[in-house]
Amino acid sequence: MRIAVVEDNDGLGDALVDALTEVGHSPVRMRRGADVLLGYHDMDVVLLDLGLPDMDGLEVLRKLRAVSSVPVVVLTARDDERSVVRALRGGADDYVVKPARLGELHARLEVAARRRSASDDSATDGVVLGDIVVDLVGRSVAVAGRDIALTTKEFELLAHLVTRRGEAVSREQLMDAIWGDAFVAISRTLDVHMTALRSKLGRPGTIATIRGFGYRWDT
């Protein structure tokens, strides 16, 4: 399991990397919040300290949750109830107070990753929305029985929205899912592809714009 160990204390960070390596995982040491925001794509789970040098860990968690559902286990010295509540409500899968027992921490990481994996495995292979049929495996779409030619990015945009139909999806989530980095991708690129997708589908109103936030596939 690939684990992002986000910890700026070298002694503790190195110890965690060594301990997780010994039990068969592939930990990657990260020292700043910016590191995990750029590198989480390749991780199965994130072990996140809250006291980071460039930004507060709760801010890192907020930004991460805006674009990704990667499992996050907070490991911090903060044991006050307010921090625990804010982290869990902010999307953390678990919260562990330092010093942590390695056996327990290992178990919590595995449980968080397994829970998210089970959720991902429940995804469907295709979606039928009125006269729109989206084949997520074959990467094709038909409207009223007619095949619609979409570019790779247009299809990925469509797939992301239809698998979350009825759910508000932020512009950052879309840019991260399709272009790989919400914090670098050019927003105008999303607008161009969204306009083309709507035109090709020819179904006004199916993709609603949420002003100042993003989009929603209306069921």
Results as ranks from 00 to 15, higher is better:
83 S>G: 15
86 R>Y: 06
87 A>T: 11
48 L>D: 00
91 G>W: 11
60 V>N: 09
88 L>H: 05
89 R>L: 08
60 V>M: 07
72 V>S: 07
90 G>K: 03
72 V>C: 08
81 E>G: 10
48 L>T: 05
66 A>T: 07
77 A>N: 12
52 L>H: 02
63 K>N: 10
61 L>T: 01
53 P>I: 01
50 L>Q: 02
94 D>R: 02
73 V>T: 07
77 A>S: 13
98 K>M: 15
68 S>F: 00
47 L>E: 01
69 S>H: 15
81 E>D: 14
68 S>V: 04
49 D>H: 05
95 Y>V: 02
82 R>E: 15
93 D>F: 08
46 V>D: 00
95 Y>K: 01
65 R>V: 06
84 V>C: 14
48 L>I: 13
57 G>Y: 13
58 L>P: 12
75 L>Q: 12
100 A>I: 03
72 V>H: 10
96 V>L: 13
77 A>E: 10
101 R>D: 15
96 V>D: 03
57 G>M: 08
73 V>G: 12
88 L>M: 15
55 M>N: 00
86 R>P: 10
67 V>K: 00
74 V>L: 08
60 V>K: 06
47 L>H: 04
77 A>C: 13
63 K>C: 05
104 E>N: 06
103 G>T: 08
97 V>M: 05
80 D>M: 03
96 V>K: 11
65 R>A: 10
103 G>Y: 02
53 P>Q: 00
84 V>R: 11
66 A>Q: 15
84 V>G: 00
55 M>C: 01
60 V>C: 07
61 L>D: 12
46 V>N: 09
88 L>G: 01
67 V>A: 02
69 S>F: 12
83 S>F: 13
82 R>K: 13
62 R>E: 14
86 R>D: 15
48 L>Q: 10
62 R>A: 15
54 D>F: 02
80 D>I: 11
78 R>M: 03
81 E>V: 13
83 S>M: 14
89 R>F: 05
58 L>Y: 12
56 D>C: 07
95 Y>D: 04
76 T>L: 12
68 S>I: 05
64 L>T: 04
92 A>Y: 06
97 V>H: 10
92 A>W: 06
104 E>G: 10
96 V>I: 13
67 V>L: 04
83 S>H: 14
64 L>M: 05
63 K>S: 14
49 D>N: 12
75 L>C: 10
79 D>L: 08
63 K>T: 00
66 A>D: 14
98 K>S: 04
80 D>P: 07
78 R>E: 14
76 T>N: 03
46 V>K: 04
100 A>M: 06
67 V>R: 04
74 V>M: 03
60 V>F: 00
98 K>D: 11
59 E>R: 12
46 V>L: 08
65 R>Y: 08
51 G>F: 15
